[in-house]
């Protein structure tokens, strides 16, 4: 294994972690509401923008800004759910999905209209980068931060969902809406909590994305990334937390290694996206409900 391979491996791990963090937001909401929250990519963008607010306007460092962004974005997520999705819970699922699409458009274009199109980035001292040299492999602290923080959040979320009453209620609700009141927690609260956590994780991904890819901060940054993360969630088996992580990682690795191996055989790096999507499509055709998804067979 040569050095560039290892370096690419870490690049893929970083990108995959970020996709996974975003995919979690899709998957958690889908788990409790069976709703594809198409606005999630733009919520991710909002999180990144809250980072601009914290770092430049308040002059805060990384950690307080991260917390601010996660809290503010969670508030946005819960508000969106209350205002736009909740009234549609009884209506057809499609109405809610269309609404979600519209909310996403509203967020990205509203943000553009209200803040202008000037290019943004975080302050240079926002996260002081160091590069470690291990043999011929160089790894930046940013990469380590992204990977470690993302994994810490996965583990925390996993424990929360498996070990706490709230987490179990969250899982129960996707199987049976009526069982949850029996567990002594209200359905509305569970849904709000789900949105808060999902969008909070999206915000963390937003800030980390801005740190890792400084040139990408604009109001449309969540569009393509969001769709991709969503597809990753589906490939993993939407509704399943492990699935989101695996799906995100697969996507990250494909996107890094297609150009890496491709250049050897004369394939340009711009083939990255179509190849990634084609691969995900193939996975879905082979396993129509994703890697961890359970097929719900219809009874006759």
């Amino acid at each position: 294994m040569d050095a560039t391979f290892i370096q690419q491996f870490f690049n893929a791990l970083q990108l995959g972690s970020l996709y996974a963090l975003i995919a979690l937001g899709y998957t958690m909401v889908y788990g409790v509401l069976l709703l594809i929250n198409f606005a999630h990519g733009d919520i991710f963008m909002f999180g990144a923008f809250m980072g601009v607010l914290g770092s430049w306007v308040f002059g805060w460092g990384f950690v307080p800004t991260l917390i601010l962004s996660m809290l503010a974005t969670a508030l946005l997520g819960v508000t969106v759910e209350r205002v736009a999705y909740k009234p549609l819970r009884a209506a057809s699922r499609l109405s809610a999905v269309i609404t979600a699409l519209a909310v996403g458009l509203l967020l990205e274009n509203g943000m553009l209209a209200l803040t202008g199109a000037d290019p943004r980035k975080y302050p240079d001292d926002f996260f002081a980068t160091q590069v470690y040299q291990i043999g011929s492999v160089s790894i930046s602290t940013v990469k380590l931060l992204v990977i470690i923080l993302a994994f810490a959040l996965f583990v925390a979320l996993f424990l929360f969902v498996r070990r706490t009453k709230w987490g179990m209620a969250m899982r129960a609700i996707s199987y049976d809406k009526f069982a949850v009141p029996l567990m002594g927690v209200s359905q509305d609260r569970i849904i709000s909590l789900t949105f808060a956590i999902g969008t909070g994780l999206g915000a963390a991904a937003g800030i980390l994305w801005g740190v890792a890819y400084p040139a990408s901060l604009d109001t449309y940054m969540g569009m393509l990334v969001g769709w991709k993360a969503f597809i990753a969630a589906v490939v993993g088996g939407i509704g399943d937390i492990r699935g989101a992580v695996i799906g995100g990682m697969i996507l990250g690795f494909v996107e890094i290694f297609v150009p890496y191996w491709g250049q050897g055989i004369g394939v340009s790096s711009t083939w990255r996206d179509p190849v990634a999507f084609a691969l995900l499509l193939i996975i879905l055709v082979i396993r129509p409900t994703g890697i961890f998804g359970v097929a719900r067979r219809q009874k006759v």
Partner: peptide, 16 residues
């Protein structure tokens, strides 16, 4: 032009 409404809170490095 709405862009001045929130731009001061989400400034670009030059628009600080």
């Amino acid at each position: 032009d709405f862009s001045g409404v929130l731009a001061p809170f989400f400034p670009s490095p030059t628009g600080l």
